[in-house]
Nucleic acid binder design. Structure first.
Length: 298
DNA sequence: GTTGAGCGTT
């Protein structure tokens, strides 16, 4: 690989900026995003066809076309073909999210037959409108259904229609309701860090970063180990973080819940049930640290 | 291997 830097611009007419490559000749998307916050990929004009071509992106790594970046100027892609600058994206998404304009929610489906699968659910609810998420809650050991699940529709009208009636699913009457978990609008802290609940173990920090980049510049992603089904994502802008609080977002087909990173009840015993020296010393330590634990994630 | 109101491994 001959070039250490490749030229990247926000637009073909703009002045390019040089972005460093990795030792293996790839470019990290995060390197691009460091200069172009919100970037989700690169494209370039193919000299032969004169068409724009996308650069291969695999798990946050951009690969040179034909194994050679050449002397081309690469153009930054933004999510949803959105060519606006990041400030506008931040403002727009923050406003849209806050306004809550007929946004759909996850619906809980109560009374499911034990045998009903997610495919069954999807098949059934698709008759009302486009479905973007279904889940059947199961016992993790046995895999048996707990008899309830969740569904999310694309259209708000579909959701309204579905809530309004009872549903005969695989021979049982079921109800769809707004879940209790989102009955009360959430807490008002203004942090740049959000709590991402209901994560699954296969969600990587990279994937979370990729996902949340669409809302604004992400400065940190933290997944506690061992796996505890939640993560923390920190944005550069607290407005973006706050706008997302209370949302249910769908990542890899799973509905995750966003809330403020500062817990309502700081139950440290939940985090460290067997802390040596007892809870008092731990509480004192926690207070002193002002939540600087883990240290790099305030 | 059961069951039938509920609320999603913080």
């Amino acid at each position: 690989m001959s070039e250490l830097y490749i030229r990247v611009a926000e637009d073909e007419s703009e002045e390019p900026m040089e972005i460093p490559s990795e030792d293996d000749g790839t470019i990290l998307l995060s390197s691009v995003a460091a200069q172009f916050p919100g970037a989700c990929g690169l494209r370039y004009r193919n000299p032969e066809s004169q068409c724009m071509r996308g650069v291969r992106l695999v798990e946050g790594v951009l690969h040179a076309p034909e194994n050679d970046w050449g002397n081309l100027v690469y153009v930054v892609n933004y999510p949803k073909d959105n060519k606006r600058k990041m400030e506008e994206i931040d403002a727009a998404s923050a406003v849209k999210v806050k306004r809550g304009f007929q946004k759909t929610s996850d619906l809980i489906v109560l009374g499911l037959p034990w045998k009903t699968s997610e495919q069954d659910l999807k098949d059934y609810f698709t008759t009302f409108g486009e479905v973007i998420m279904v889940q059947v809650k199961r016992d993790l050991k046995t895999g048996n259904s707990k008899g309830f699940g969740f569904v999310r529709f694309t259209e708000y009208e579909t959701q309204t229609k579905v809530i309004a009636q009872r549903h005969m699913i695989d021979g049982r009457w079921c109800d769809c309701k707004l879940p209790n978990s989102k009955a009360s609008p959430d807490e008002p802290m203004r942090s740049r860090k959000i709590f991402v609940g209901r994560c699954t173990e296969d969600m990587t920090t990279d994937e979370l970063r990729q996902y949340f980049m669409q809302y604004g510049e992400v400065t940190d992603v933290f997944i506690p180990k061992p796996f505890r089904a939640f993560a923390f994502v920190t944005f550069a802008d607290d407005q973006v973080a706050q706008a997302l609080c209370g949302e249910d977002l769908i990542i890899k087909g799973i509905s995750v819940h966003i809330s403020n990173a500062e817990p309502k009840h700081n139950n440290i015993h939940q985090l460290f049930p067997n802390f040596p020296g007892g809870s008092a010393s731990l509480a004192a330590m926690f207070d002193r640290s002002q939540y600087q634990f883990p240290s790099s994630h305030v």
